[in-house]
Amino acid sequence: MEKKRKEGVRSGKKKKIKLSVNGIGYELEIGDKPGEVDYGHTLAHTLRETLNLTGTKVACDHGACGCCTVLMDGKAVLSCMTLTVECDGKNITTIEGLKDNKTGALDPIQQAFIEHSAFQCGYCTPGIIMSAKALLMENPSPSKEEIKEALSGNFCRCISNYQAIDAVITASNRGR
């Protein structure tokens, strides 16, 4: 505790980023020390390396595969293409934040993904689920074509695409 306070005093001049991740507020200092946010850090890096939220995956690390998809103020964004310094004041939701923390209940999309076995290796699954979440928040009853369009930026090499589409349809039916 002592050490932490001292660091706070020493870095009093440092700029801070305030952001909320899965409902928890974080104040991260800008700098190049462990636990700080470097100007070059992507949101994916901060989530995974600084906040230890490794549910968000990185595969291509340049905006092609959608594995790193998270919600920013309810919209799907690619966290590997978003700098953390741009996230000041934003609300971020990751795959770890979809579950209802009070009841422990899974999000209907997560539940449907389990029922449909809508994954194989599971590496791209968090990104697909987050893209689906953004879709259903905006459009609770999407058509199959709209689902395909919304997930078209998500890579799934095992080809669980068909079962993922069915899972999103199931989740959207339950939400009606």
Binding site: G55, T94, I95, E96, L106, Q110, F113, F119, G122, I129
Partner: peptide, 10 residues
């Protein structure tokens, strides 16, 4: 492992 995969715990 289904529960862990869909919640990012894996």
């Amino acid at each position: 492992d289904a529960g862990d995969i869909v919640t990012g715990k894996t």
